[in-house]
Simulated scan of single mutants.
Amino acid sequence: MKTKVFTFFFTNKAVIIMNILGFYLFAKITEDVVEKEYILVIDRWIETHINAIQTPLLTKFMVTLTHFNGAIGIFVFSLLMMLFLVYKRWYNDLLFYFFAVLGANIAYIFIKMIVQRVRPSSDILSIATHSFPSGHATMATAMALALYFILAQRVSSLGLRSVIVMACIVWPIIIAFSRVYLDVHWLSDVLAGIGLGVFWVTLIELINRLKKIVG
């Protein structure tokens, strides 16, 4: 049993490190927000100066982009993704994707209700829900990371795997930036959302891998 545990930690050290870093990022930002640490000064500074880079064309693009990762966009994409996984008969991956996305969704909603942080005063979009953490950043990270774990293991081409990695990194970053750009989230909101998404999905992935060893 000890050998299996050692082997598990050794062969999955990259995912374990990601899990720890994701948790630390989320926990540290949450503590700083709740305790009103220096991160709030950075948040305010960005809110004050974000309009310096706003243009009508870029704003229109960001609004369109952020809607792709809204509730309807997530539902449609996840439905298509799960139908694809059923078609391929990748049932373990189907369960993994389902719990990764559903769990991330429940987690950020639950945390929003606890923290109840007020959003910045955006002149572009009006949103009534609480601010912390960013649901868009959490879900974009969770979905992208889940896709990476599902697809990367089945791709032998280094070039194609690199494309998958880049896409799964760039998408959450762009979505997180769009939320700050549109002034509907503080920087700390999206950083916490990314951390939460990374932590949750890597936790589900580690549980899946542990079950294969133990089983």
Rank of each mutant, 00 (worst) to 15 (best):
F6P: 09
T7D: 05
T11E: 12
N12P: 07
K13W: 14
K13V: 08
V15I: 12
M18A: 09
M18D: 08
L21W: 06
G22L: 05
L25P: 03
F26A: 02
K28F: 15
E31K: 12
E31I: 06
R44M: 13
W45A: 12
I46H: 05
I46V: 15
I46K: 00
N51E: 11
K60Y: 11
F61E: 12
F61W: 14
V63C: 13
T64V: 14
T66S: 12
H67M: 15
A71E: 10
G73L: 07
F75W: 12
V76L: 10
F77L: 15
L79A: 10
M81A: 10
L83H: 06
L94K: 02
L94I: 05
F96E: 01
F96P: 03
F98M: 09
A104Y: 00
A107Q: 14
I114H: 08
V115F: 02
R119Y: 04
S121Q: 14
A128M: 13
H130N: 12
S131P: 11
S131E: 04
F132E: 08
G135K: 02
T141G: 00
A144G: 06
L145S: 04
L145M: 13
Y148F: 15
F149D: 03
I150V: 12
S157H: 09
L158Q: 11
G159V: 07
G159S: 10
R161N: 09
A167Q: 07
W171L: 15
I173T: 14
I175W: 00
A176R: 03
D189C: 04
V190Q: 00
G193S: 04
G195C: 06
V198P: 05
L210A: 14
K211V: 10
